[in-house]
Design a protein around this nucleic acid. Structure first.
Lengths: 216, 216
DNA sequence: CTGCATCCACTTTGATACTG
DNA sequence: CAGTATCAAAGTGGATGCAG
């Protein structure tokens, strides 16, 4: 397996050699949220050819970014997860996501949204400066998407699924045929198109702590 | 010109659609340092096929990342520069560069180093926390590479070429046949393999402010 | 079922040559 | 200087096959 390189001794070039190929960073994005199986990745990345997914996983494994685990006793099967090196990609992925979010136009017909995507876009929107000292937890729901954000003294933990004891559950009322993207959720929240269960005042906190800078 | 997209309404996917193709971010890297002409880019990116450079520049222009300027009176010709949107990519490029720098092994035979690469790797190594309140300027030299870093009350300005009135000129003594990468420069500085002109105590400051985390 | 491998049409890349 | 033209090789997307 010969790697095509850029012939530059440079951190950026190296990064692109390791995770710059098509679909690679989207695989990493999904794995940043939680370990996934082959078919999970496949369905979370609509349009990825199966052989490309297979190839990428091998390359990422060889690059030391992804780890292939054969799950043990109970639910056996293969699970892909990020190595510590792979997890170190999070700041870079979030930075890219911030920039990309500002360049998002309207959803194209055929676009999909995954929980992983929404979770990462939420993390990208996180403003540590606005969160200092804040402790609170949210559960966010839209269509069939459920995720949570837990702030503990300004530190963020986030992931898929319900929060254990959410201070506030935000259910965004998004049009049946519209996409439940993070942006759409925030827009809904700003317009009051949400159902709130819990400490309703924490909605403003949420909107302050998770801010997508307006696209120019 | 049909864009292949990822079918996801997600900031990361959007970013990859706009600047995720081969060579694109390296072009952006070079332009983050200074506007360049076609042939400058070509020689700074050894190995890029000319038709690919041409195609990328058109795509990046259409994406609103790069601007094609026909230079006026004196030195006429075409100059490529980043738009404000393109400049907003800097945090993402630096984050990728930080990660990639940690994954750099030894230079491969045939690897090149460009001033643009060194400059960006230096910016990626910048630790704002260590620079608070610091005002100083350095000129860094190695082989035929010359760049500068000017800290004004903790704010960094950096670029190619000599500094106007450098507080310290650091000339790294790097083996004739070794690459003058930023990493090599830092290594040389740590080993005292440098020639210093000016306020020699600022070498330690430099090393503290520009720190590449050790690769694991 | 999951986790791929194989096959094939199509597109992109890389290398080189050439032009206004 | 600033690209276009050409063409072989590699990579991608889509469909299908198949073992555990």
């Amino acid at each position: 397996m010969k790697r095509r390189d850029f012939g530059q001794y440079c951190g950026i070039a190296r990064a692109l050699e390791l995770v710059g190929e098509r679909w690679a960073l989207l695989i990493v994005r999904d794995l940043l949220v939680r370990p996934r199986r082959y078919t999970d990745l496949q369905s979370g990345l609509p349009g990825i050819p199966t052989n490309v997914l297979s190839t990428r996983l091998k390359e990422l494994e060889q690059a030391g970014v992804v780890e292939r685990r054969v799950a043990p006793a109970p639910q056996r099967g293969v699970v892909y997860a990020l190595t510590p090196v792979g997890q170190d990609l999070e700041p870079a992925v979030l930075a890219l996501g911030r920039w990309g979010s500002a360049q998002l136009g309207e959803p194209q017909p055929g676009d999909h949204v995954s929980v992983e995507g929404v979770t990462l876009n939420m993390r990208a929107a996180f403003q540590p400066g606005q969160a200092e000292g804040v402790t609170a937890s949210w559960e966010i729901r839209a269509h069939d998407i459920v995720l949570h954000a837990v702030l503990t003294d300004g530190k963020l933990e986030s992931g898929v699924g319900p929060a254990p004891e959410p201070d506030l559950v935000i259910t965004a009322k998004i049009d049946e045929d519209a996409l439940p993207s993070f942006r759409a959720i925030v827009t809904a929240a700003k317009s009051g198109l949400v159902e709130l269960t819990g400490r309703k005042k924490l909605l403003d906190t949420f909107l302050r702590v998770f801010t997508t800078p307006r696209p120019a």
